[in-house]
Protein backbone atom coordinates (compact mmCIF):
# COMPACT_ATOMS: atom_id res chain seq x y z
CA UNK A 1 0.00 0.00 0.00
CA UNK A 2 1.35 3.38 -0.94
CA UNK A 3 -0.04 6.51 0.55
CA UNK A 4 -1.36 9.13 -1.85
CA UNK A 5 1.38 11.49 -0.86
CA UNK A 6 4.04 8.93 -1.72
CA UNK A 7 2.63 8.52 -5.19
CA UNK A 8 2.35 12.22 -5.73
CA UNK A 9 5.91 12.62 -4.61
CA UNK A 10 7.30 10.07 -7.01
CA UNK A 11 5.42 11.47 -9.95
CA UNK A 12 6.74 14.83 -9.14
CA UNK A 13 10.30 13.59 -9.04
CA UNK A 14 10.15 11.92 -12.41
CA UNK A 15 13.77 11.53 -13.42
CA UNK A 16 15.86 9.04 -11.54
CA UNK A 17 18.64 11.49 -10.81
CA UNK A 18 17.35 14.81 -9.70
CA UNK A 19 18.40 17.89 -11.51
CA UNK A 20 20.40 20.28 -9.35
CA UNK A 21 17.35 22.40 -8.90
CA UNK A 22 15.59 19.49 -7.48
CA UNK A 23 18.24 18.80 -4.93
CA UNK A 24 16.02 19.88 -2.04
CA UNK A 25 14.19 16.59 -2.05
CA UNK A 26 17.19 14.81 -0.69
CA UNK A 27 17.62 17.39 1.99
CA UNK A 28 14.04 17.03 2.99
CA UNK A 29 14.38 13.28 3.27
CA UNK A 30 16.02 13.62 6.63
CA UNK A 31 13.27 15.85 7.92
CA UNK A 32 10.13 14.24 9.26
CA UNK A 33 7.91 16.60 7.31
CA UNK A 34 9.12 15.06 4.09
CA UNK A 35 5.74 14.59 2.51
CA UNK A 36 4.46 17.91 3.70
CA UNK A 37 7.00 19.87 1.73
CA UNK A 38 7.35 17.85 -1.40
CA UNK A 39 3.92 16.44 -1.99
CA UNK A 40 1.17 18.41 -3.59
CA UNK A 41 -1.34 15.84 -2.37
CA UNK A 42 -4.08 16.90 0.03
CA UNK A 43 -2.39 15.31 3.05
CA UNK A 44 -0.20 18.20 4.13
CA UNK A 45 0.89 16.68 7.44
CA UNK A 46 1.81 13.16 6.31
CA UNK A 47 3.70 11.52 9.13
CA UNK A 48 6.22 8.71 8.93
CA UNK A 49 3.40 6.44 10.07
CA UNK A 50 1.40 7.52 7.03
CA UNK A 51 4.33 6.69 4.78
CA UNK A 52 4.22 3.13 6.08
CA UNK A 53 0.41 3.10 6.11
CA UNK A 54 0.29 2.56 9.86
CA UNK A 55 -1.27 4.15 12.89
CA UNK A 56 0.81 5.86 15.53
CA UNK A 57 0.32 2.92 17.87
CA UNK A 58 1.86 0.35 15.52
CA UNK A 59 4.00 -2.32 17.11
CA UNK A 60 7.56 -2.89 15.99
CA UNK A 61 6.40 -6.10 14.31
CA UNK A 62 3.82 -4.19 12.30
CA UNK A 63 6.42 -1.61 11.30
CA UNK A 64 8.77 -4.29 10.05
CA UNK A 65 6.00 -6.09 8.19
CA UNK A 66 4.78 -2.87 6.57
CA UNK A 67 8.30 -1.96 5.54
CA UNK A 68 8.84 -5.33 3.89
CA UNK A 69 5.49 -5.22 2.16
CA UNK A 70 6.20 -1.76 0.77
CA UNK A 71 9.75 -2.71 -0.17
CA UNK A 72 8.37 -5.59 -2.22
CA UNK A 73 6.16 -3.05 -4.00
CA UNK A 74 8.44 -0.08 -4.54
CA UNK A 75 12.08 -1.20 -4.40
CA UNK A 76 13.63 -0.36 -7.78
CA UNK A 77 14.81 -3.97 -8.19
CA UNK A 78 11.22 -5.16 -8.17
CA UNK A 79 9.70 -2.24 -9.99
CA UNK A 80 12.33 -2.16 -12.73
CA UNK A 81 10.95 -5.39 -14.16
CA UNK A 82 7.69 -3.81 -15.33
CA UNK A 83 8.36 -0.10 -15.21
CA UNK A 84 11.56 1.19 -16.76
CA UNK A 85 13.34 4.09 -15.14
CA UNK A 86 11.62 3.51 -11.84
CA UNK A 87 12.37 6.11 -9.25
CA UNK A 88 14.21 5.10 -6.11
CA UNK A 89 12.60 7.96 -4.19
CA UNK A 90 9.56 5.97 -3.16
CA UNK A 91 11.72 3.32 -1.62
CA UNK A 92 14.02 5.82 0.04
CA UNK A 93 11.04 7.53 1.67
CA UNK A 94 9.74 4.23 2.96
CA UNK A 95 13.17 3.29 4.20
CA UNK A 96 13.67 6.64 5.93
CA UNK A 97 10.35 6.21 7.71
CA UNK A 98 11.24 2.67 8.68
CA UNK A 99 14.72 3.52 9.94
CA UNK A 100 13.30 6.15 12.28
CA UNK A 101 10.33 4.15 13.51
CA UNK A 102 12.20 0.85 13.94
CA UNK A 103 14.71 2.43 16.30
CA UNK A 104 13.02 2.86 19.70
CA UNK A 105 15.09 5.92 20.60
CA UNK A 106 14.57 7.68 17.28
CA UNK A 107 10.90 6.78 17.34
CA UNK A 108 10.41 8.22 20.81
CA UNK A 109 12.17 11.37 19.73
CA UNK A 110 10.08 11.61 16.57
CA UNK A 111 6.84 10.98 18.44
CA UNK A 112 7.70 13.73 20.87
CA UNK A 113 8.33 16.20 18.06
CA UNK A 114 5.18 15.06 16.30
CA UNK A 115 3.13 15.59 19.41
CA UNK A 116 4.67 18.83 20.64
CA UNK A 117 2.41 21.28 18.78
CA UNK A 118 -0.60 19.15 19.46
CA UNK A 119 0.13 18.84 23.14
CA UNK A 120 0.30 22.63 23.32
CA UNK A 121 -3.12 22.78 21.71
CA UNK A 122 -4.32 20.12 24.12
CA UNK A 123 -3.41 22.34 27.04
CA UNK A 124 -5.73 25.07 25.80
CA UNK A 125 -8.56 22.73 24.96
CA UNK A 126 -9.31 20.14 27.61
CA UNK A 127 -10.76 17.46 25.37
CA UNK A 128 -11.32 17.34 21.66
CA UNK A 129 -14.93 18.18 20.94
CA UNK A 130 -15.80 15.36 18.57
CA UNK A 131 -14.42 12.43 16.68
CA UNK A 132 -13.38 8.87 17.25
CA UNK A 133 -12.07 8.09 20.70
CA UNK A 134 -8.54 6.80 21.03
CA UNK A 135 -8.32 3.08 20.26
CA UNK A 136 -11.90 3.21 19.08
CA UNK A 137 -11.63 0.86 16.14
CA UNK A 138 -10.17 0.38 12.69
CA UNK A 139 -7.81 3.30 12.52
CA UNK A 140 -6.14 1.75 9.53
CA UNK A 141 -6.84 4.40 6.93
CA UNK A 142 -4.46 7.28 6.61
CA UNK A 143 -7.04 9.88 7.56
CA UNK A 144 -8.02 7.98 10.65
CA UNK A 145 -4.40 7.73 11.63
CA UNK A 146 -3.82 11.43 11.36
CA UNK A 147 -7.00 12.43 13.10
CA UNK A 148 -6.18 9.91 15.78
CA UNK A 149 -2.81 11.39 16.40
CA UNK A 150 -4.44 14.81 16.72
CA UNK A 151 -5.69 13.92 20.15
CA UNK A 152 -2.21 14.20 21.45
CA UNK A 153 -2.76 11.63 24.14
CA UNK A 154 0.01 9.35 23.01
CA UNK A 155 3.65 9.74 23.71
CA UNK A 156 6.29 7.12 23.53
CA UNK A 157 6.81 7.01 27.27
CA UNK A 158 3.21 6.25 28.08
CA UNK A 159 3.10 3.86 25.15
CA UNK A 160 5.46 1.57 26.92
CA UNK A 161 3.29 1.38 30.00
CA UNK A 162 0.23 0.30 28.07
Amino acid sequence: MITPSALACSQFVGARIPSPFFLPISKIRSSPRCAAVTATAPAPEATLYDVLGLTAGATSGEIKAAYRRLARACHPDVVAADRRGASPDEFMRVHAAYSTLSDPEKRADYDRRLMAPKLAAFGRQRWPPRGPRPFSSSASSTSAATSFSCYGRRTWETDQCW
Binding site: R16, P20, L23, S26, H75, P76, P88
Partner: peptide
Protein backbone atom coordinates in the same frame (compact mmCIF):
# COMPACT_ATOMS: atom_id res chain seq x y z
CA UNK B 1 28.27 24.35 -0.57
CA UNK B 2 25.96 21.39 -0.86
CA UNK B 3 27.46 18.00 -1.67
CA UNK B 4 24.96 15.27 -2.44
CA UNK B 5 25.79 11.61 -2.92
CA UNK B 6 23.42 9.31 -4.70
CA UNK B 7 23.68 5.54 -5.06
CA UNK B 8 21.03 4.06 -7.32
CA UNK B 9 19.70 0.53 -7.19
CA UNK B 10 22.43 -0.68 -9.54
CA UNK B 11 25.03 0.69 -7.11
CA UNK B 12 26.12 3.55 -9.37
CA UNK B 13 27.53 6.44 -7.34
CA UNK B 14 26.93 10.01 -8.44
CA UNK B 15 28.16 13.08 -6.63
CA UNK B 16 26.35 16.40 -7.08
CA UNK B 17 27.81 19.59 -5.76
CA UNK B 18 27.29 23.30 -5.99
CA UNK B 19 26.86 26.53 -4.10
CA UNK B 20 23.48 27.23 -2.52
Amino acid sequence: ISVCMDIDASDVLRVLAGVV
